[in-house]
Design a protein around this nucleic acid. Sequence first.
DNA 1: TTCTATGTACGAGTCTAGTCGTACTGATGC
DNA 2: GCATCAGTACGACTAGACTCGTACATAGAA
Lengths: 122, 122
Amino acid sequence: MPTPNAATRPDTPADLPEPLSEPSIEELRLEVVMGALGDPLRMGIVHKLLVDAEDFDHACGWFGLDRPKSSLTHHFRTLRDAGLIRQRQYGLERRSHVRVADLNARFPGLLALVADWAPQPE
Amino acid sequence: MPTPNAATRPDTPADLPEPLSEPSIEELRLEVVMGALGDPLRMGIVHKLLVDAEDFDHACGWFGLDRPKSSLTHHFRTLRDAGLIRQRQYGLERRSHVRVADLNARFPGLLALVADWAPQPE
DNA sequence: TTCTATGTACGAGTCTAGTCGTACTGATGC
DNA sequence: GCATCAGTACGACTAGACTCGTACATAGAA
């Protein structure tokens, strides 16, 4: 499990909580990212973050997902382990945002596809 | 293992064998496509088809995959069911090619990502 | 016809993902 | 102190993926 050093992250303001453990940019794997997006619930999470997130970080209650908390933990962790989202602890809440810069740098065009995604009708 | 001599490439689709059962363009789902690409073996198949295929259709022996035939059947079927490849029966061989036009129309940029993919180094 | 080559069908085993309930932790507020 | 709230950890269950061996179907060539 990769443990990135926040000191090497030049764009991280000092007043933000430390990001939780996540793969570095070099460790991002396209097949892992796509595997994580293979589940419609997770695809919907990333999609909603890209489309509806007006400010940056959102706790998982914001998504309005009707699943037990333990299931959400599983899916958010899968997304974070794949490198799709970054999570920070804000007091009680663990807020997430998409790693837009990292993903655009490694997989240009991928996030545009996710943003254009529409959930299965019916 | 040399490539089978390229089948005569009549530009009239009527001369080609009928494609095997596959989803229509409207039925293509991004999360299904990405789920199919979540396996490194399948990612490698599509990648090789995009990068190394000089002519159009290749039988699965062309890929040089060291797996039992029944495993390959499973993976190629998964790719076809997801809409990534089209398969046609040429006598004994079932040859495949990527549905480039369909995928570019529905998910522009996706195939470029797969073409840029590199297998996990060791 | 018989042999060979390509690939499917089927079944079984194993492994992992997804699901959920319950108990727990850690921060906030009374 | 105590209660509350967001989220994790853990265990269990289930369904599906991945794997493979074997048997079978079929096309083409000897």
